[in-house]
Amino acid sequence: MADVGNLGNEALKRKERLKALRAKKQKRSAHNDDGEHEDSSEKEQLPKPIFRSYKPKSEVLKEGSLPRIKPEDVSEKVKDQLESAKTDHSIDEVDLTNLAPRKPDWDLKRDVAKKLEKLERRTQRAIAELIRERLKASKEDFANVINAASVTENQVDEDD
């Protein structure tokens, strides 16, 4: 119930503000009626029209029209452009590698190259780890295994 009382007070305040605004507006209109008119001052402030393509028939409006503009001679500019187009461009400067078509899967290889590098590193690590495990399992000396591997490589080279 307290809200209803507050709403009533707010409504009364709003009515008072509106009355004050109306009174203020009436004072302004009364002042303008006694002295200068608003309409005449607004007419003086309006800009005068400028006619670019319209030809007014009224003598009063003809003052605001712009004089006709003659088109500029562009024949010299056209001649200059034609002369610049006649110059011979050497074909020797063209790089044929840029003109050659690329393979249809070049973009796929480019995108996959980074991933392949990572996989290659992981593969090398895994191979090295497997070799270490085999060596530990066989419990042989590392030097003997390396010597045996180099001996087999030499034999393969001699056979070729």
Rank of each mutant, 00 (worst) to 15 (best):
M1V: 13
M1Q: 13
A2I: 13
D3R: 06
V4K: 06
N6I: 10
N6D: 13
L7E: 13
G8I: 12
E10Y: 08
A11T: 12
L12W: 06
L12K: 11
E16C: 03
E16Q: 10
R17M: 14
K19E: 14
K19Y: 12
A20M: 06
L21I: 12
K24Y: 09
Q26I: 14
K27I: 14
R28Q: 15
D34I: 14
E38I: 07
E38Y: 03
S41T: 10
K43F: 08
E44Y: 05
Q45Y: 14
P47V: 01
P49D: 05
P49C: 03
P49W: 01
I50Y: 01
R52T: 14
Y54L: 14
P56H: 03
S58H: 07
K62G: 02
K62C: 05
K70M: 11
V74Q: 06
V74L: 11
S75C: 04
S75K: 05
S75E: 06
E76M: 07
E76T: 12
K77M: 13
V78W: 01
K79R: 15
D80E: 15
Q81H: 13
E83L: 12
T87N: 03
D88L: 05
H89P: 00
H89M: 11
H89C: 07
I91G: 00
E93A: 07
P101C: 01
L108G: 08
L108V: 09
K109L: 12
L116T: 03
K118C: 03
K118V: 11
E120L: 02
R121L: 10
T123P: 00
T123S: 07
T123C: 05
R125P: 00
A126M: 02
A126E: 02
A126I: 02
A128L: 04
L130N: 11
L130S: 09
L135T: 03
S138I: 11
F142C: 07
F142R: 07
N144M: 04
V145N: 00
I146A: 09
I146P: 00
N147C: 02
N147A: 08
A148Q: 04
A149V: 12
V151M: 06
V151C: 03
Q155F: 05
E158N: 07
D160N: 12
